[in-house]
């Protein structure tokens, strides 16, 4: 399942996309620990697979939650994207 967590508002589109099919066999799910804002959680999806999702409490303010990793200048690579061994994670902004 391709899951798009986040929102679109008047300021733009702010989605974290997770290809959950790639999470199923991922050992330790390192993206969860890599995120300084604790944005990710592990959960069982409705079809019985252990996957990574974006915490409900963070989803609606994801632009703000992710802001510390996204300075307007000299942006370093995103820690969550770097940590994911399967290339399952991406950000829309």
């Amino acid at each position: 399942m391709i899951a798009h967590y986040g929102y679109k508002d008047a300021q733009g589109e702010f989605y974290i996309t997770i290809d959950t099919g790639k999470c199923v066999d991922c050992e330790g799910k390192p993206c969860i620990k890599a995120c300084p804002g604790s944005v990710f959680i592990e959960e069982e999806d409705p079809y019985g697979d252990e996957v990574v999702a974006v915490d409900d409490l963070k989803r609606k303010k994801i632009m703000y939650e992710c802001a510390p990793c996204k300075p307007t200048r000299d942006r370093p690579p995103l820690p969550c994207v770097v940590a994911c061994p399967h290339g399952a994670l991406s950000h829309s902004w």
């Binding site: 303010k61 632009m63 703000y64 802001a67 510390p68 996204k70 300075p71 307007t72």
Partner: peptide, 12 residues
């Protein structure tokens, strides 16, 4: 304030 401060943090 938290929304505004995140704008500020983006410009340092």
């Amino acid at each position: 304030a938290s929304r505004v401060s995140s704008l500020v943090r983006r410009v340092k």
